[in-house]
């Protein structure tokens, strides 16, 4: 099953490679990984999307907790959460396609953030499926480039992950 893990880790050189190294050394799946410092510059927040059986996810959580630079690990799947990903897509937009692409982007609440005579660059945020659905909705041959950040996740309601 797909799990979204939220981590707080020391904002130290090398912390990222410890996490990434753990996943490759132990053969755990990694769908995406995002990381950036938080409002407290000594801490980074990381979101890892992974998949595996319950046993594997349990091991992943335990192994992450064991890393000295990792301060907290939380499996967002244990509660309600919100997941968002940012995607930038550059598409070939010519002739009658221009109108069609604009309409599709609107339907998905995307924004066109750069325009040339022959291209649009569209910005889209949402959960993974929504971004996938957008890519499915337009003609594949129009896509010139896609850039996705990978998911960021946060728990719903009052619940917070902090030191």
């Amino acid at each position: 099953m797909r799990h979204i893990l939220s981590l707080l880790l020391e904002n130290e050189a090398g912390a990222l490679s410890r996490v990434a190294g753990l996943f490759s050394a132990r053969g755990y799946n990694i769908e995406s990984l995002t990381v950036a410092p938080t409002e407290d510059p000594t801490l980074s927040r990381m979101t890892i999307v992974t998949s595996g059986s319950e046993e594997v996810i349990e091991q992943i959580t335990k192994q992450l907790n064991k890393l000295i630079d990792v301060v907290k690990v939380f499996d967002l799947n244990e509660g309600n959460y919100i997941e968002r990903e940012l995607m930038l897509v550059k598409v070939r937009a010519e002739g009658k396609d221009r109108e069609e692409l604009k309409r599709t982007a609107d339907i998905f609440r995307g924004r066109i953030i750069d325009v040339t005579d022959r291209t649009y660059t569209i910005e889209l945020t949402g959960p993974r499926d929504k971004l996938d659905a957008f890519l499915d909705a337009i003609d594949r041959s129009q896509i010139l480039e896609t850039v996705r950040t990978g998911a960021s996740g946060i728990g719903r309601g009052e619940w917070v992950l902090r030191v």
């Binding site: 046993e55 349990e58 091991q59 335990k62 192994q63 907790n65 064991k66």
Partner: peptide, 11 residues
């Protein structure tokens, strides 16, 4: 002492 040793290979 190490939680990751527990239920790693044997539940």
């Amino acid at each position: 002492i190490d939680p990751s040793s527990i239920s790693k290979r044997v539940r």
